[in-house]
Structures are given as C-alpha cells and as structure tokens.
Design a protein around this nucleic acid. Sequence first.
DNA 1: CTAAAACATAACCCTATGGTTATTAAAAAC
DNA 2: GTTTTTAATAACCATAGGGTTATGTTTTAG
Lengths: 119, 119
Amino acid sequence: MVIKNSINLDDVFAALADSTRRGMLERLSRGPANISTLADGYAMSQPAISKHMRVLEKAGLIHREKQGREVRVSVNTRTVEHARDWIAYYTRFWKQQFDAVEQYLDQHNLKNPPTEEQP
Amino acid sequence: MVIKNSINLDDVFAALADSTRRGMLERLSRGPANISTLADGYAMSQPAISKHMRVLEKAGLIHREKQGREVRVSVNTRTVEHARDWIAYYTRFWKQQFDAVEQYLDQHNLKNPPTEEQP
DNA sequence: CTAAAACATAACCCTATGGTTATTAAAAAC
DNA sequence: GTTTTTAATAACCATAGGGTTATGTTTTAG
C-alpha cells in the first residue's frame, strides 16, 4: 500500500480548483467507485478523465486500487482534513477581527449610514 | 462598498493553491495590512505582488480599501468560510466511509496481517 | 482464440498562470 | 514645486493545465 506522507497544500488546493474534480470527490462521498463510474456524466474523453485522476492522486486526495481491469477509487480522508484544517485554523483569527469590527460598529451604532442618507 | 455575492469555488481554491497567497492570508490573520506590508519578505517584484492581490480579490477572499496612496487589505470571512464548509460538508461522508472500514477491520481483527507474516 | 472493455501513455494544441521590466498615476514628503 | 513612495497597468516570456486524438496494455467476455 502506497501512502503519501507529505501533504502539499499547493497540489491539494489546485486539485480542488476544478469543478470536474470536485464533482468526482462529491460522487465519492456516496462511496468508493471505479473510474468509468466517476467519468459518468462528464462530456470529455477518457484520457481527460485519466488526467483528472492523476491530479487528484498526486495531491494525495484519492487512493487507487487495481481490481482486475478496473480501478477502485476512494477518498484519502487525511489529506482532505488537512486542507479543511488549514482554512479552519485561520478562519478563527479572520473571523475574530471581523467580529471585532462588527461589535464596534454595533456598539457605536455605525452599522448603517446616517439616517439622512437613507431613503 | 463592492461586495462579491457569487462565490466561485474554482477561483477560491485556485487562489489558495499558491503559497505566496496563503502566506499573505496568514499574515492577514494578525490583522488588516497594506499591500507593501503584505509584500514584505517575498523576493519578487512589486507587479508580481500586485497580481497576487488581484487573484485574491477576484476570488473574493480579500477586500481592498484605498487609504491615501496606500491600500488597506482585509480578509473576506464569508468566502473563506464557504471554502471551508464545502470541504467540511463532504468530509463528514468521506470519513464516515473510512470509519466504517476501520470498524469492520477492528471487529473482524483484520487490521494487521496474519501473524505468520509478521516479524 | 478473438473481440471488447477499462484504463494508461504519448504527442499535440491553446489558454491560463506566475514571473519579469518599463511606464504611469496619485498621494505624501521635503 | 520637485522628489519619493505606493500601487496599478502594459507588454512580454516560459511553463503548467485542461483538453484533444491516436495508440498500447491488460483483463474480461464471447
């Protein structure tokens, strides 16, 4: 079993930056699937699908397992959580600032423009 | 005030797929900053920085505010949370499958190979 | 044994991306 | 009023990305 142990956020987010690949990951949330199943519904050639799989695999987002002539694909939870956690971690601080501003505006009744400007 | 109301995950994740831009967002977790401050520590030209800002703005990840000749930049919490939530939502299902497999392997004592194969 | 199915790889095309230098605009400093 | 500073824009370059067709490989089906 090949396990990717170094998560590269560049690759992970780049892989997520394509709706076809996100669609495949969404499909995989209903359970593992083989590649032709994942390809279902996309109007593109088989090699194009193959490339998308490669991008997802290089990012460590999926795991492929040969089963006869088919390939069973499943999501690599660890990588996906890493991306989520990166955003979630900083969201704490970003939101904190945002809330601070909100609170200030609330307390000083500055959230809306002066009444003379309103309709 | 210009508010981006349609969040495009393609743009958001693409913007996050660059360590320079992630670095700037990390810097912004310590509070809003002007662009030259954000550029600090990056060995690249000023126009390159300018381009990165454009990418972040197009993705709706930041908000720029002209203050004299400087530009104050702050994080757009809403967009950032949207990206986080997309991942977090599906993580529930992916992890559920993962856990189901783990549980099965535990219950059937299949997590490790047969003892004869072990050192 | 031969044909079909499921995938991978190679070679190619076009556009997007990340960087550069040169130039410009506007505000601040002197 | 002239010079600096901050930032944007234009024009360019090289590489990466997403797509294609053509071809090959392996496994299953007939």
